[in-house]
Design a binder for these strands. Structure first.
Lengths: 398, 398
DNA sequence: GACGATTTGTTGTTAGGTAAAACATATTAC
DNA sequence: GTAATATGTTTTACCTAACAACAAATCGTC
């Protein structure tokens, strides 16, 4: 692996080195939530004196703070702990069919506030933007004095064009080719970046959840509306040419399957469905925890059959993903995580036999670790991206 | 897109900047086969004087040469053309079931010599290594005086662990867990890197073939033994955690399909097979061009039915790949390219309806452009990687 | 055919960032 | 309490790229 990246064919000028190094250090602090300066020195390979200068600048800019050393029981002079500064925050927005959720998230992935604004009906773009902008205005009033809001990230349940944040299709919201990011920018004045919700979840799990420290992973999320996912390869999110990558929900898993809203048939998300489980369990409108508890407690053979049927199809999608992407971890979220919780050995057995031997030996299936805040954290990450890429754009020195 | 990459968390020291810039410039020259210095200035964003210094060092190291300016009909002082130096070469090796092919490939992807050494039977690793080492010794004698051999790249029809070049499984050669790279290093004294043959083909098409200038693509190759592939995303090869990524041949395309040697069933490569076409056409042991010519000329409805049946299954794999990876190009090689040549509109129609609308609008299917030298060029790229990453390791200055 | 405009190569100078070395400091081990 | 160890701090030196000024080579125009 190379230290610096040359794929874009851009050269490196002198002060870009500084920017790059600031970015590297800030990212390490961001991901770690508290890391000694000595560890920064080791992990970056930079000189002690250089790290001191970089950390100094980041502190001056208000992006990180230094805390007293841990009682570490280590020989040698203790090293101060670098922490994400509480000042820098991002706003995360997640429109859904029955509500718009808005949160303030700190650097380091801490959710400071979270408000859920129910909508009477499935919101149009204008409604969702209006509700969100209202909430943003309130949060702004609350946080603006004590914090610096770097921007807004939106996690949308649909296909989002990365370049400009246009929602190409959000089937359950009924949105088609809607410039959501642009509308939110106009309504709030903040820079807005939008992405698919499962992609946001992937980033969150990758940095702060079950994927910490894993460079090659696949995240699959089962939601009320369908199945989405995301890919991290060599530590980078795979977005594809326009940002639509990760749609594992429309992988073919059943040649004789039924038609899907996407136009094809036999898709993973037509076979593996949350509502089928709810129906069998005679539940309506429950949250994830309740569904999982009921599912785990269920003893009916019909339930067991349905669980295994769904896991059979999930295994097909996993086999395809493992063979084509060779991940070291597969993280299951939403009701897929619950399905796995009910019969882990059943799925494990299929994952241990269906993919090719070499890639299957390298992979393990785990449940997601982040809870309800996953999308907020992932969306905020979109907004932090600019600061993490170029910390020198934030705050002032002197 | 960031100018420099920080995903590995390494910082940037001062002389690494120089290495990086040398690498960027060399890669541009390598990929372009002849590029004016002024274009290097524009594409890197570096200063004229800096480019002059970098090019000067690369020339001194014997990695590039400068040629007279083109008669360009442009206002202003003409800019000399930077070309890959003829001196730097790599050796490419491709073991197959009936022969071992060895080639000398120049920087810039030019195949200088190519020798095919037939083997009486399917070679064992020892036999293949011995045949290859023989050929390498001869080529070394021929080239050593006038050229500098940077190393050896091996394209293996099987799963290769990237880290150490161990062949985990080459089904048609019957190789299992064989340290091929290590054995070749011992036999030749050169550094050896090995990879899957389809991955090598992907790299070759991406740099010099149908994928030139495309950052997000999928390559699918149909060989006598099966179907392999590779992924380029954001300009980088996706290898996965151990190097096994790209095995599209074992994507499920038929729920009621037959068992595959991989242990699963309904795989793409059990349904889409070259030998079925050969049987129908009453051909044996023909090369790609003959197969394609016969296939295109065939008028029998059985042949047409089989072609369409195979394209139906191929379309499923493409749908999955398009939905999950959102590429802008899909490149078909080997007999998949021939299949496509017979009925392009048939496959295009499926690609235009089965994937999700947004990603399918962004993708086009094309045939591979590189011929028989594809694997040699891709394998050589493995060997060039070290020099391209750190040109300062090659040659001497002063 | 000469002159201006334009583009690029060349040369010398300057600014800026990191590494290295020497010293200072805080902790553990004995 | 002293030695060993690890890390923070300060100063210095080196290296790289940018910049500016000048030179050179081409095209277009009168």
């Amino acid at each position: 692996m190379t230290v610096v990246d040359s794929v874009d064919g851009r050269g490196n000028s002198n002060d870009r080195v500084r920017r790059h190094n600031l970015s590297v250090v800030l990212r390490l602090v961001h991901r770690s939530r508290g890391i000694p300066r000595s560890a920064l020195t080791r992990q970056t390979g930079l000189n002690r004196s250089t790290i001191a200068a970089l950390v100094g600048e980041l502190v001056e800019r208000g992006l990180i703070v230094e805390a007293e050393p841990d009682a570490s029981n280590q020989v040698g002079r203790p090293s101060p702990i670098a922490l994400p500064a509480p000042r820098a925050v991002a706003i995360a927005i997640n429109p859904e069919i029955d509500a718009v959720t808005v949160a303030v998230v700190g650097l380091g992935g801490t959710v400071l506030t979270r408000v859920r604004r129910p909508t009477p009906t499935v919101p149009s773009v204008a409604e969702a933007v209006s509700v969100a902008a209202d909430a943003v205005a309130e949060l702004r009033a609350e946080f603006e004095k004590s914090h610096t809001i770097v921007g807004i990230g939106v996690a949308v349940p649909g296909l989002v064009r990365a370049r400009d944040g246009v929602v190409r299709l959000a089937p359950h919201l009924g949105w088609i080719d809607e410039p959501v990011a642009g509308a939110l920018e106009a309504a709030t004045g903040y820079p807005v970046r939008a992405a698919n919700d499962a992609n946001a979840g992937t980033v969150a799990e990758s940095i702060f959840g079950a994927g910490r420290g894993v460079a090659d992973l696949i995240y699959l999320n089962g939601g009320a509306s369908g199945i989405g996912g995301g890919i991290i390869s060599a530590g980078r999110v795979i977005v594809g040419v326009e940002g639509y990558a990760g749609e594992f929900g429309h992988t073919l898993v059943n040649t004789s399957g039924t038609a899907c809203h996407c136009g094809a048939s036999g898709c993973l998300e037509t076979e593996v469905r949350r509502d089928r489980l709810l129906n069998l369990l005679a539940l309506t409108d429950v949250d994830s925890d309740e569904l999982e508890a009921t599912l785990v407690a269920a003893r009916s053979p019909e339930v067991r059959r349905e669980v295994e049927r769904q896991l059979d199809f999930l295994a097909v999608a996993l086999r395809n993903a493992i063979n084509t992407l060779n991940p070291s971890k597969i993280i299951l979220g939403g009701f897929l995580s619950s399905l796995y919780a009910v019969a882990p050995q059943y799925l494990d057995a299929m994952v241990a036999t269906q993919p090719l031997l070499a890639p299957r030996e390298a992979v393990s299936v785990v449940r997601s670790e982040l809870g309800a805040n996953r999308l907020m954290i992932g969306a905020a990450e979109l907004a932090f991206e600019g600061v993490l890429d170029d910390p020198a754009s934030f705050g002032q020195v002197g």
